[in-house]
Structures are given as C-alpha cells and as structure tokens.
C-alpha cells in the first residue's frame, strides 16, 4: 500500500490546523471559554445559595407543574437521597454542566433542524455532519477542545453540546417533515408566508417529536459527564472517575446511582412536557 500511494499526512494537517486556529482565534476562544465558564459556575453558585432541602422541594414543585404528582414525589425523594449521600454539591455542578450544554444544543440544534426541514440541499450537508458528530469517539474532540478552551468545565460543555445536539436536529427535521402534506397545502392555499406556515402549523404539530429530541439530547449530555470529567469538569462525573481510578467500587456506585436518579428525573419530566398541552385529540 505504502508503495503505490504515498501516505498522506492527515494527522499532521489536522494538528497544524488546530495550532493555526488556536494562534489566530485565541482571543475569541478565550472569550467563549470565559463566557461558558461564567454561566456554569455562576449557576452552581447561585443554586448553592439555596438550602438543599428547599431547593429539592422547589425542583419537586417544578416537576409537578410540568408533569405528574408521582414524578414530583420521585424528584423530592431522589434529590433528598443524593443530599443524604453527600453528593449535593457535585450534583449541582453536574446539573449546571448538563443544562448549559443542553441549552446550547437546543439553541443551535432547533434552528438548524428547521432549516434542514425546509431545504433538501441543507439536509444533504447536515445529515453527514450529524453522523460524524454522533459516531466520532467523544475523546477525539475532547482533545482539541482542551487546546481551545483549556482544562476544566468548558471543554466538557463543548464536547457535550456537540455530542448531544444530533437528536434534537434530527427529530426537529423529522417532526416538521412529518406534518401531513394536505395541511401544508392548506396553509399555502390561504396565502401563508414560510414563517407563518412554520410557526402556526408545522412547529406546533412537530412539538411532540421535537420534545422527544430534546429528551434524547438531555440523556446524551448526561452520558457525557464522566467523559467530561477526564478533562477536568467537576461534578458527579468527577466522583465516578476518581472512584474508578482509585478502585473504590462503593463510592463509584453511590455517585453512579446519583447520576441515574438525576437522569430519571430529567427524562420523565421532559417526556411529560412533550405530551402535555396537546389540546384536543391529535391524529
């Protein structure tokens, strides 16, 4: 093989590219880094000011408002249990990381999904990119993230955003495209603009599907917390990672169980948020 085709130095090119980016856009990356760090650490500080029991009750009430009483009860007991195990602060750190990541994944993912739903050419660009984002091992883009954003919570956020965005984009596209053709025709026949068609008919009808995508994004982002802790992101993931490196099985389980509890709460609550407010009967 070597003799027929000269080995192209892809790895070198990529290294050089990353170096060039770091040198050229260093200040931009620093700005982004400070911004993200500010958001995550700020929200942790802010949440930590509230006594843990009161915060657990507040979260439970929020869950009740969005979903059902059973889920609210589980939220309360689950959070108090985490507090009891002594993982309250790491839990808050993880929550801030996850929610920040998901927030940016949605802010970018939903518009991209809408764009993709409207144009076939856009889909041709987006789909392979999504495949790449989902299948490329997360560690691989964790590395350049360190160069761009240093060690700490920020590369963790960036990696989580990249990893968790695809379901939101895919399901937004799918949901909008699944709106029956005759409804689209009806909106057109009455003289809707593209935006009116999207905002009044397509997006509302796609909402359950989009929410399923949001739910998946949250779950994927949670699955990234342990990996993010390898580049220094604090939180429950860090506890698990430390337990693994020090072979402390018990501690690992405790921290892992806490992650599971948070995951179940977020999953159930967002699933219900998608189902609720579906006035009347949908086909």
């Amino acid at each position: 093989m070597d003799k027929i085709l000269p080995r192209l130095p892809f790895a070198e090119w990529i290294d050089n590219g990353v170096d060039w980016l770091v040198v050229t856009f260093g200040t931009v990356f620093d700005g982004i880094s400070d911004f993200l760090k500010g958001i995550v650490e700020g929200s942790v500080e802010w949440l930590d000011m509230v006594p843990s029991i009161l915060l657990a009750v507040l979260f439970a009430l929020l869950a009740w408002f969005v979903s059902t009483r059973r889920i609210a009860l589980f939220t309360l007991i689950g959070l108090l249990f985490i507090d009891y195990l002594g993982y309250w602060y790491p839990m808050l750190q993880m929550l801030a990381l996850v929610l920040t990541s998901v927030f940016f994944a949605l802010i970018i993912g939903i518009p991209v999904g809408i764009w993709g739903s409207q144009q076939a050419t856009a889909r041709k660009i987006i789909n392979p990119l999504l495949d790449l984002m989902q299948t490329m091992p997360a560690f691989v883009y964790l590395l350049p993230a360190i160069f761009f954003f240093n060690i700490g919570v920020v590369p963790g956020v960036v990696a989580s955003v990249i990893f968790s965005m695809p379901p939101t984009i895919r399901l937004t596209m799918l949901g909008i495209q699944q709106v029956p053709k005759d409804l689209i025709e009806a909106t057109e026949a009455f003289g809707s603009t593209t935006w009116q068609r999207l905002s009044k008919v397509q997006i509302p009808l796609a909402k359950p599907t989009i929410m399923a995508g949001v739910n998946q994004s949250i779950m994927l982002s949670l699955s990234m917390v342990v990996i993010a802790s390898m580049v220094g992101a604090p939180g429950l993931g860090e506890e698990v990672y430390r337990a693994v490196t020090q072979l402390k099985t018990g501690v690992g389980f405790e921290a892992g169980l806490s992650i599971v509890i948070v995951a179940i709460i977020l999953d159930r609550v967002t699933q219900h948020a998608g189902k609720k407010k579906q006035g009347g009967i949908t086909k």
């Binding site: 029956p180 005759d182 409804l183 025709e185 009806a186 057109e188 026949a189 009455f190 003289g191 809707s192 603009t193 009044k200 008919v201 509302p204 009808l205 579906q278 006035g279 009347g280 009967i281 949908t282 086909k283």
Partner: peptide, 22 residues
C-alpha cells in the same frame, strides 16, 4: 399570496384541518 388571501378559498378532500387548533 395576496390572490390566495383575498380571492380564492380552498376546501380539501381530507378536510386538512389543523388538529392543534380549535
């Protein structure tokens, strides 16, 4: 768009009502 808004109304075979609206 103006013609569609003011001059022509359309009724569809399978009704094409918006299920999320009253």
């Amino acid at each position: 768009r103006n013609v569609r808004r003011k001059k022509i109304g359309m009724v569809f075979q399978n009704f094409a009502l918006f299920p999320h609206k009253t």
